[in-house]
Amino acid sequence: MSIDSVFVHKMWNDNELSKMVKGGVPFPMLSDGGGRVGKIFGIYDEDAGVETRGRFIIDPDGIVQGFEVLTPPVGRNVNESIRQVQAFQHVRKTKGAEATPSGWRPGKKTLKPGPDLVGNVWKKWKTEMAFD
């Protein structure tokens, strides 16, 4: 979503993005003229008149599970967004019985929060596990 019109989105997709991604952008490219949606999400820059790099993970119940906002010059880490979605999906699947510690990605160890875990995380989780 950006403040550009759907016509500009079409030009960008058809003339440039479709050369980078086969078949063009697979998801809807949303237009937010005036930044009205950006304002309610708190990422609209009034002075510059554009939206900053806000990214929101919204779960199947419509609940915001996480967000990240960057100023324009720095791009996002797409892998990190995907990792976070996978982690939230895992937590949801276990109905909160499992939590994903720092550095978790699919296949890595999860933690089961509860009285027995208090003070014992160091036995189950090592600092190296925070890194890839």
Partner: peptide, 13 residues
């Protein structure tokens, strides 16, 4: 609703 949504804002096309 019922799906996971990744909503991304960006400065411009």
């Amino acid at each position: 609703l019922g799906k996971w949504v990744l909503l991304c804002f960006y400065p411009g096309d």
